[in-house]
Structures are given as structure tokens and as C-alpha cells.
């Protein structure tokens, strides 16, 4: 008996992906800032371009993930929907629902991480 791998068939990875993008964006922002300051590479304002590119690509990635999540969820977003039917379809829609909302959370968190860049001009 051969079972399909959860990566291929399941929707589990979509659950972890949006916030992984956030984590990548966060760490890169931190590293760029820290290395920039530690190595004394020019004024911090120059990093803004790097940060804008980072943030826009992260948001793009999250929106693509949100699209996948939306397709899995296949519905109009209802705030409180149980999605507890005992079928494969129910499970897929449930995971899509969670992943869709996680994408929103990830997008908000990415924007929040970006905000300090607008304020700081030196290390």
C-alpha cells in the first residue's frame, strides 16, 4: 500500500508557508540592518531601497500563497465557519481557511516589520 506524501497531496505546507515568508523577511531585514551597521556601509537611508524590495517581494510571495489558500478554501470568507464535514473536501477547505487567514496575518506582520525602516536614518 503506497500513501501519497503530504507535501504533494496535502495542504499542510500552505499552513506553514506564509509565516515562513514573514520569518525570512524578518531575518533578512534584521541581518541587512545589523550587518549594515556593524560593517559601517554608508548611511542607513541606502538600506531603504533594499528593504522596500525585500518587503514588496515578501508581500508578493504571501499574496501568491493566499491565492493558493483561497483556491483550497473555495468560499467567500465567513468569519465564523465551522468547516467540520468529515470529508477530504472538508479538510482541504479547513486548511485553506486557516492558511488564508495566516496569509493576512503574515502580510500585516511584514508591513509592521517594514515600518521602522521609514523612521530611522542612522544606526
Amino acid at each position: 500500500m503506497k500513501y501519497e506524501r503530504i507535501i504533494d497531496k496535502g495542504s499542510v505546507w500552505v499552513l506553514a508557508a506564509p509565516l515562513t515568508v514573514w520569518a525570512g523577511h524578518f531575518l533578512l531585514s534584521y541581518w541587512v540592518g545589523a550587518v549594515w551597521c556593524a560593517k559601517g556601509w554608508g548611511p542607513l537611508v541606502d538600506t531603504r531601497i533594499v528593504m522596500v524590495v525585500l518587503t514588496l517581494s515578501a508581500l508578493l510571495a504571501v499574496s501568491l500563497l493566499a491565492r493558493i489558500a483561497r483556491q483550497r478554501y473555495r468560499g467567500v470568507l465567513v468569519v465564523d465557519e465551522a468547516i467540520d464535514d468529515p470529508t477530504e473536501n472538508g479538510r482541504t477547505r479547513f486548511m485553506g481557511h486557516v492558511a488564508l487567514m495566516l496569509s493576512v496575518l503574515a502580510a500585516v506582520a511584514i508591513v509592521m516589520t517594514f515600518l521602522p525602516t521609514l523612521v530611522f536614518e542612522r544606526c
Binding site: 551597521c37 496575518l105 500585516v108 506582520a109 509592521m112 516589520t113 521602522p116 542612522r122
Partner: peptide, 17 residues
């Protein structure tokens, strides 16, 4: 660096959501 602190401050606020 203050810019580093600010990133962590932002995440610390974000976790409240």
C-alpha cells in the same frame, strides 16, 4: 543598533494580534 531593536519591537507588537 536602534534599527535592529525597532524590528524586534515591531514583531513584539505583532505577536499581540
Amino acid at each position: 543598533p536602534e534599527i535592529s531593536l525597532a524590528f524586534f519591537s515591531a514583531a513584539s507588537e505583532a505577536v499581540a494580534i
